[in-house]
Amino acid sequence: MEAPQYVAARVQGALAEDERTNELGIRVDVRGEQLFLRGQVSCEERRELIADVASEAAPGLVVRNELTVVDVRTPEEEEKL
């Protein structure tokens, strides 16, 4: 069986290099049969696309999609320097 670290690295590489995602900042952890995705993305569609690309790169694992969508607020405060 392939060591989980190599699986995680392959998924991370796929997320960065796949034209559909090109996401560099996603944390990928493999624990047993589960693959965890963590980090922040810009919208719901990307959140799902990333899970799709990850599951293609690691078939057979259950993808736990813990990515959160960044909620862009309108700025209220300013910082005085």
Partner: peptide, 26 residues
């Protein structure tokens, strides 16, 4: 020198606003 990381996911708001002036008022 002050450094600000303004990556959108870090800010969580559409943009940061930084006020530069000598007298501490904006």
């Amino acid at each position: 020198i002050r450094v600000r990381n303004v990556a959108l996911p870090v800010l969580g708001r559409a943009y940061g606003v930084y006020c530069l002036n000598g007298d501490g008022r904006c």
